[in-house]
Amino acid sequence: MSTSIKSEVGEKDPLASALDQSHSADQSIVEAATVKHVIFAIDEALFAFPGGNVAEILPLTTIHYVPGCPPSLEGVINVRGDITSVIRLGDLLGCRHAPDSRRAAILLGQSRGTDDAPMRSGLRVDRVEDVLDVIEESILPPTDTLPEQLRGLATGIFQHHGQAVIALDLERLFQDYRRALR
């Protein structure tokens, strides 16, 4: 009997070992630096904006046409009394939008405003895939093989369910668009 107790004290039982392993795994996840991203699709291509640049994800609603705008600026929407522009994001990235579906959405993008005043605009996307914390170390630098329209906008590439996601710089996107560079 005393031998059995000694054995229990001296060696950890399988459950205790499993709990230890789980605790260690949790600690390693907590310690890794992560950045929240909103992952979305335009047709079949996946892109992402930093979570801090997306104030809201809105369902596709009535977009009111305003004359005098370039084709990439689809119009405006009413967001609880605020009137916000809506840009066809695919047109700026050189991607063709998929036909409208129930999964289409408008990301309410907001720049933080460093040199310029903060800006807001809706960005039309074909669907929102996920909102998740991405481990910074898993984000690789953009490659030189990216299409020309994505160079300068892409901040990195990471994998999501086996598919490449191109992280984009929304601040730069807004600045370029305002200056008619896109």
Binding site: P70, I83, A180
Partner: peptide, 24 residues
């Protein structure tokens, strides 16, 4: 006008907007 729309607006005569009613 929303800032990006104002920056890219090709018609100077479009000066302001108003929404009446609630979506949709």
């Amino acid at each position: 006008l929303p800032p990006l729309l104002a920056a890219r607006q090709g018609l100077a005569c479009v000066r302001a907007l108003a929404c009446v009613g609630h979506p949709p």
